[in-house]
Amino acid sequence: EPAPAPAPAPEPAPAAEPAKAAASFTAKDVQALRRDTGAGMMDCKKALIENDGDVEKATIWLLQKGIASAGKKAGRIAAEGAVGQYIHMGARTGVLIEVNCETDFVARGEVFQELVADLAMQVAASESVNCVSTEDVDPVFLAKEREIELGKEDLQSKPEAIREKMVDGRMAKRVRELALLEQPFIKNQDKTVNQILQETIATIGENIKGRRLVRDNLGGGLGER
């Protein structure tokens, strides 16, 4: 009998695709992208990462996301707007927030009115929030908070440089907790309030500013009387 045919050799495994190299860009690239688009630093960094460090492609990416156009509108005067209010269930917490836009037409529109209502509800749900942006945080309060942090027992054994760095990190976190724009959006936790604001600016084509807010809890001042 003839010898059986040899078994076919196994096909070689497909070569693994080379790992994608990390995006290469510099701080100057980020600054240039911010200057050209008006977008925020973190948005510019993300755009460069998503586009392998290519500034031109990153610019297009920001425009497609509506972030670049929103940034360019940031310098325009917003003098119209609305005051939103939210009274929490049981009437124990009340919020007022002033949000400005450029025209009365937009201020009366459904998109803007919904944004104002959402921001008022966001403040009611965020107990630590007492201002709109990190720039609005009271510097006197921050100085006192920093002094308290520096005196905490867990830092006393650290070298001064390490202690200062740790306090810087804690203070940055504290500032974010106080600012409305830094909070995860109540209707979409994957985005911050600021991102929702920028998307709305891109949608309506006008600058929008959160101007001021106040939150009051029933009996909140009794301990001071």
Rank of each mutant, 00 (worst) to 15 (best):
A23H: 00
A47C: 08
V123H: 09
M166T: 09
P2M: 11
Q31E: 14
A82K: 14
P12N: 09
M166Y: 03
E177T: 01
H88Y: 11
L181E: 04
I196K: 08
R170H: 09
K165G: 13
I49A: 14
A202R: 03
E164A: 13
Q183Y: 02
E110C: 10
A107R: 11
A202T: 05
V129M: 07
E147N: 07
I49F: 07
V55P: 07
D52S: 15
K72F: 00
R176L: 07
L62I: 06
A161D: 11
C44W: 08
R146N: 10
M89N: 07
L181N: 07
V214L: 08
K173H: 04
A9I: 15
I196Q: 10
R92P: 03
R92G: 15
A91N: 14
V55W: 01
S133N: 03
A124Y: 08
E110D: 11
L197D: 01
L181I: 13
S126D: 02
A15I: 08
E110H: 11
G219A: 10
G94K: 05
E145T: 04
E50N: 14
I87Y: 02
D43K: 13
R34S: 01
E114L: 15
S157T: 14
F141K: 14
D104C: 09
V167H: 00
K57A: 13
G66R: 10
K158H: 05
A9S: 13
D154V: 14
L115W: 12
G66E: 06
N194Y: 01
A5I: 10
P14L: 11
V83S: 14
G219Q: 12
A23K: 03
P4Q: 12
G210M: 12
K46Y: 08
E127F: 06
I60Q: 13
R34E: 03
Q189Y: 07
A78G: 05
D54P: 06
P2T: 14
S133C: 04
L155H: 07
F141Y: 12
L62G: 07
I196C: 04
A27L: 01
E11N: 14
L96K: 14
N100C: 07
P18Q: 15
N130D: 10
S24M: 08
A202M: 07
V55Y: 01
Q183P: 01
G220F: 08
G223Y: 10
E149C: 09
E50M: 09
V167A: 00
R163F: 04
P184Q: 06
G169L: 11
I148H: 04
E182T: 08
I148E: 08
A15M: 12
A39R: 05
F105K: 09
N188P: 00
F25L: 04
E149R: 11
C101N: 03
N188K: 11
D190L: 06
G221S: 10
I87E: 10
A70D: 04
G66D: 06
E110F: 04
K57Q: 13
I204L: 07
A21R: 10
E50S: 12
Q195H: 06
V137N: 02
M89E: 06
G81C: 04
R225D: 04
D29F: 02
A58C: 00
A179E: 01
I97Q: 01
Q122K: 09
A125I: 09
D43V: 04
G205P: 06
A143D: 12
I208A: 02
L33K: 06
A107L: 11
E199G: 07
